[in-house]
């Protein structure tokens, strides 16, 4: 595309890092389970962007696509199981705030 690979790499790496920092920050400052899950999802988006960019720049786009498909499959399983856990948590504590888990057994 007429631009040096290093410049492309720097561009993708910068924006993937910014997206991942946003997700990580959201994950760290909140006590709400649903918002934590959203933060995790944003981190995975950054990782996906980085994998595709690495595949594009190294010429191994087919391999990168196969890895991204694997990431998406695992992401969906994580989200579905986490959604079930969140609904159970809400049924038990009538809240999504993890501060309310002080009454856990064990």
């Amino acid at each position: 595309m007429g631009v040096e690979p290093a410049t492309w790499f720097w561009l993708f790496l910068t924006f993937a890092a910014l997206v991942m920092i946003s997700g990580l920050y959201c994950f760290l400052v909140t006590f709400n389970l649903l918002r934590m899950l959203i933060g995790l999802e944003i981190i995975i988006k950054g990782v996906t962007l980085l994998i595709i960019a690495a595949g594009f720049l190294s010429g191994q786009l087919a391999l990168a696509q196969a890895i991204v498909i694997t990431v998406i499959v695992i992401e969906v399983v994580i989200m579905v199981v986490a959604a079930g856990l969140i609904i159970n948590f809400h049924d038990l504590f009538d809240s999504l705030n993890v501060k309310n888990t002080r009454s856990l057994k064990g």
């Binding site: 790499f9 786009l61 087919a62 196969a66 498909i69």
Partner: peptide, 19 residues
């Protein structure tokens, strides 16, 4: 300082065959 030098190859393969 990173000094990244990436390979710029055009090895197009089918994603389905990789999969």
């Amino acid at each position: 300082p990173l000094g990244v030098s990436l390979p710029w190859r055009e090895t197009v393969t089918d994603a389905r065959s990789v999969m």
